[in-house]
Design a protein around this nucleic acid. Structure first.
Length: 419
DNA sequence: AGCACA
């Protein structure tokens, strides 16, 4: 112990740490003030304020040790002490190397909704909420008690759902739903409070759960006739019609539902059978709708087998319904615009040649864009043997390589799974 | 004015 200062608790010379301990802070000092204080010396990656019995201590963690050293060094020789709101604050290296358990972006006040669910099957509503019928009375904002990994689908429509816990009280079946921020929670609250949740909303959101589970390492993705498509690098608008066109090349598309997931576009595409979906997934996975790497498709199997499209609009459509104008005249509770404006109706058998010129949202000249790429590349044998849904008349319109085919740039030599 | 919370 050559060390002079081996007093257990406090010593004047702490070993350096990228975490600084601050004391004598003004009452209820805010994180913003801490960041302001530390910013001149480096990147403040974390803070913790209102620490200690008097709540007048705090921690600042810099990205780099040198930044913390810079701050300590500066104030060690500065004539002006560090100040917050004119109050001198004392700082030194913390005896810890990192701030633990500080608020993350997922713990901002007001980002958790307390939900009370009522309905005939309310107490049967498990977290997958596939059978969630009613959500009524999002009572208040609260704090999360027991985090669980599952995500409640209805709420995923409004943003990433970090955690959900469910429990039963005398008030009924309840849940705490944690979003990334208060804004998302508020928008969910405004949209859902007192409303009956349409099954459709549950269903379009539920794959997000599946997706998230996948990321978590829980694989399970049994084949399905419904594909979940995520579109990456969406430089150009991908419309319902575009998706319908792309996916119709492999068989009749029964239904499509588009929705946002964390700002990215996703869609569910329903085929009548699993085999068609498999073929489409194999053919399209990783490929780009537009040349140049734009609108790259990522496909997975949904757990759904039959989407319930309540509203036909520019985001969702049931192509199996002959006259969409008659579908669901009632407005959606989530503020989706009511039906109307079905410029044209497609179904799998109405694949009109030359319709690529009708593309309402033709991107600004994507190289080898839809003009030459109305139909995804597909082996002829597949067209003839497995895909009776595209009339031969549309064949001449097909151009190989409309979509970037990684590896070959042309028609992939894959053999479709036996149908 | 001297080191936290889940």
């Amino acid at each position: 112990m050559a060390s002079v200062s081996s007093q257990p608790q406090f010593r004047y010379t702490q070993p350096p740490s990228k975490v600084l301990h601050l004391r004598n802070l003004p009452w209820e000092c805010t994180e913003e003030e801490l960041i302001e204080l530390g910013k001149p010396f480096g990147k403040v990656v974390n803070t913790k304020c209102n620490v200690g019995a008097n709540r007048n201590q705090a921690f600042i963690e810099f990205a780099d040790l040198n930044q913390a050293i810079a701050m300590i060094s500066y104030y060690a020789s500065s004539s002006e002490p560090a100040q917050v709101r004119g109050k001198t604050v004392y700082l030194q290296y913390s005896n810890r190397q990192e701030i633990v358990n500080n608020k993350t972006t997922a713990d901002i006040a007001g980002n958790v909704l307390l939900v009370t669910i009522e309905g005939q099957d309310a107490r049967l509503v498990s977290i997958d909420v596939l059978h969630l019928d009613h959500v009524k009375g999002i009572i208040s904002n609260g704090s999360l008690v027991h985090p669980e990994k599952e995500h409640m689908c209805v709420f995923s429509a409004f943003g990433f759902v970090h955690k959900i816990t469910t429990f039963e009280k005398t008030a009924g079946f309840q849940a705490l739903v944690q979003f990334s921020d208060a804004e998302t929670a508020t928008s969910a609250k405004n949209a859902l409070d007192g409303r009956i949740i349409p099954r459709f909303e549950c269903e379009i959101s539920e794959p997000q759960e599946q997706f998230n589970l996948g990321v978590d390492g829980k694989k399970l993705e049994p084949e399905s006739n419904v594909l979940l498509a995520s579109i990456e690098n969406m430089q150009y608008a991908v419309t319902l019609d575009v998706l319908h066109m792309v996916f119709s090349a492999f068989g009749p598309v029964q239904k499509i539902a588009m929705f946002d997931k964390n700002g990215a576009l996703q869609a569910l595409i329903q085929y009548p059978d699993v085999q068609t979906a498999i073929v489409a997934k194999e053919a399209l996975e990783g490929h780009c709708i537009y040349d140049g790497g734009f609108c790259k498709l990522h496909l997975s199997y949904s757990r759904h087998t039959d989407l319930s499209i309540k509203v036909n609009n520019d985001r969702s459509r049931d192509y199996t319904i002959p006259n969409p104008a008659m579908v669901n005249p009632q407005p959606s509770v989530l503020g989706q615009q009511p039906v109307q404006t079905m410029g044209h109706q497609y179904n799998g058998t109405q694949y009109a040649p030359g319709r690529q010129q009708q593309q309402p949202t033709m991107p600004p000249q994507p190289s080898a864009g839809w003009g030459s790429s109305a139909v995804p590349p597909m082996p002829q044998h597949m067209m003839n043997n497995h895909n009776p849904y595209i009339p031969p008349a549309s064949m001449p319109q097909m151009t190989q390589g409309m979509m970037q085919m990684p590896g070959q740039g042309g028609i992939p030599p894959f053999r479709p799974t036996h149908m």
